[in-house]
Amino acid sequence: MSHTDVTHGRWRKSSYSGPDDGNECVEIATSPTHIAVRDSKTPSLGTLTFPAGAFAVFVSALKESEDRPA
């Protein structure tokens, strides 16, 4: 699957999507080399595609920032 095919893959909603905030989340689709991200409320408006390694660094940075005191 090329990175251009990732948007035709299986989309998954964020694990934070629940009954109270289910309308405000992102969806992702993955391939071996790329991650695609879109707004679950308006998926037809656009998709961002990232190299898998860059996305992993981004997610790690978010997790680290959650652990830091405000």
Rank of each mutant, 00 (worst) to 15 (best):
D21A: 11
A54I: 03
L62K: 04
E64Q: 12
S15F: 03
L62W: 08
E27G: 03
V26A: 09
S2I: 05
V6G: 05
D39S: 05
K41W: 05
I35F: 07
S65A: 13
I28H: 06
T33V: 12
F55V: 00
E64Y: 09
V6E: 00
S17I: 09
H3C: 14
A70I: 02
F58M: 15
V57D: 14
A36K: 06
R12E: 14
A70R: 14
D5W: 02
S14Q: 07
T47Y: 01
T42W: 05
H8S: 15
T49W: 01
E66C: 12
E24H: 14
G53A: 15
V6T: 13
S31M: 02
V6M: 07
E24A: 15
D5M: 13
G18Y: 01
V26S: 04
S31F: 08
L45S: 10
G53D: 15
D20F: 08
P51W: 00
H34E: 12
F50H: 06
D67S: 14
E66F: 12
R10N: 12
T30M: 14
S2P: 10
A56I: 03
A70K: 10
S60Q: 10
D67M: 10
T49D: 01
K63H: 11
L45K: 08
A52C: 06
D21H: 13
A29E: 02
Y16N: 13
V26I: 14
H34C: 15
R10M: 10
F58Y: 14
T7Q: 11
T47L: 00
H34T: 15
S40W: 03
I35E: 04
D67G: 09
P32K: 05
T47P: 01
F55H: 11
G22S: 01
D39E: 05
A56Y: 00
G9N: 03
P32L: 09
L62P: 05
R10G: 06
G22I: 08
I35G: 08
F55A: 15
T33P: 05
E27Y: 10
A70Y: 11
A70M: 07
F58D: 11
I28T: 15
R12Q: 13
A36T: 04
I35L: 14
L48K: 03
C25L: 08
S31C: 03
D5Y: 06
L48N: 08
P19S: 10
V59M: 07
H34R: 08
K41Q: 12
F55D: 04
G46A: 03
I35K: 01
E66M: 11
A54C: 03
